[in-house]
C-alpha cells in the first residue's frame, strides 16, 4: 500500500497563543478509515483543517506522496446553502470546478440517490430533517468523486438511529469508492464501528497517544454492534482514551 498522506511534526499555535495541536506525525495509507478520537478541544478539528489546507500549520509539513488527492470535507453542521435545492447544493463542487451543467446535474443527482435522497432533488434545506440535510452534505462531498474524505464530527448532532443508519451508508460509500476517510469524533463506539484504524489524541495540545489498527470494517452491520468482538475493540479504544487523559493530567 502506498501512503496517501504524511504529516511530519505538525503543530498549530493560534494567534492568541493557544497551543492547539502537536507536534504530530502521522502516515495515512490509501483506503484507510481512520478515526481521530479525543476529548473536546484536543485539536482534532484543527488537524483536519490543516490536512484540508484550510489552515496553515505553525510548524511541520503536510505531504501527499502520490500527488494532491481530490479532497472533500463534511462539517458537523450540514453547512448547506439555504437558497439552493438539494440538487444545487450537491452540485456545488462540480459547479466550482466548471463541470458542464448537464453532466454536473447527472452526477449530483446520482450522488443524492446513493445517499438515499432520490426524489428530493428539488427540496430546499429547510424542508429536510437534520439527518436528510447531513445526507445532502455527504452527497455534495462524494459528487466530485474524492479520494480523501475529511469528516469533522459529522453525526454528533443527530439522534442515535439516524446516526447508525448514516454510519452504515458511509461504510458502504467507503467500500464502493475505495475512499480514504479521516473521521473526527469523540465517540468511542462510533470510531470502533467505522474504522480500520483509530488514533487517540491527548488533551490540548493534541498529540497522538495511541494508534491502533482494527479489523477491516467491510461488511459490518447492526449485528456487529452487538458482537463480543465489537465490545472488546471498543473497550481497547476506551482504555487508550482514558490512558491519554490520565497521562496528560
Amino acid at each position: 500500500m502506498t501512503s496517501l498522506l504524511s504529516l511530519t511534526g505538525i503543530a498549530k499555535t493560534f494567534d492568541n497563543g493557544v497551543k492547539a495541536l502537536g507536534p504530530v506525525d502521522l502516515e495515512v495509507q490509501q483506503h484507510e478509515f481512520l478515526s481521530l478520537v479525543g476529548p473536546s478541544g484536543c485539536g482534532k478539528s484543527t488537524a483536519l483543517r490543516v490536512i484540508a489546507g484550510l489552515l496553515a500549520p505553525s510548524a511541520g509539513k503536510v505531504e501527499f506522496p502520490g500527488g494532491n488527492p481530490e479532497t472533500a470535507f463534511v462539517f458537523q453542521e450540514s453547512t448547506l446553502m439555504p437558497w439552493a435545492s438539494a440538487l444545487d447544493n450537491a452540485r456545488l463542487p462540480l459547479d466550482l470546478k466548471g463541470v458542464a451543467r448537464a453532466e454536473a446535474d447527472m452526477r449530483a443527482g446520482r450522488a443524492l440517490e446513493r445517499v438515499g435522497l432520490g426524489g428530493f432533488e428539488k427540496s430546499f434545506p429547510r424542508e429536510l430533517s437534520g439527518g436528510m440535510k447531513m445526507r445532502v452534505s455527504i452527497a455534495r462531498a462524494i459528487a466530485a468523486e474524492p479520494k480523501l474524505l475529511l469528516m469533522d464530527e459529522p453525526f454528533a448532532a443527530l439522534d442515535e438511529l439516524t446516526r447508525q443508519s448514516l454510519n452504515d451508508d458511509l461504510l458502504k460509500l467507503w467500500c464502493e469508492d475505495k475512499l480514504t476517510v479521516i473521521f473526527v469524533t469523540h465517540s468511542v463506539y462510533e470510531s470502533t464501528y467505522l474504522s480500520s484504524r483509530v488514533v487517540v489524541m491527548t488533551p490540548r495540545p493534541g498529540r497522538i497517544a495511541a494508534d491502533m489498527a482494527l479489523a477491516a470494517p467491510e461488511n459490518r452491520d447492526g449485528h456487529y454492534r452487538l458482537s463480543p468482538e465489537f465490545t472488546t475493540q471498543a473497550a481497547k479504544v476506551s482504555a487508550a482514551l482514558r490512558n491519554a487523559m490520565v497521562e496528560h493530567a
Binding site: L54, A72, F75, T79, M81, L92, L96
Partner: peptide
C-alpha cells in the same frame, strides 16, 4: 465561515465566492 472554507477547498475564485455565496 464553513461554507467559505468549502468554497476555498474546491478552489473557488473571489468572484465565485461573491456571486454564489455572498450575494445570496
Amino acid at each position: 465561515h464553513n461554507l467559505i472554507d468549502l468554497f476555498r477547498l474546491y478552489g473557488a475564485s473571489r468572484r465565485q465566492i461573491l456571486m454564489r455565496l455572498q450575494f445570496p
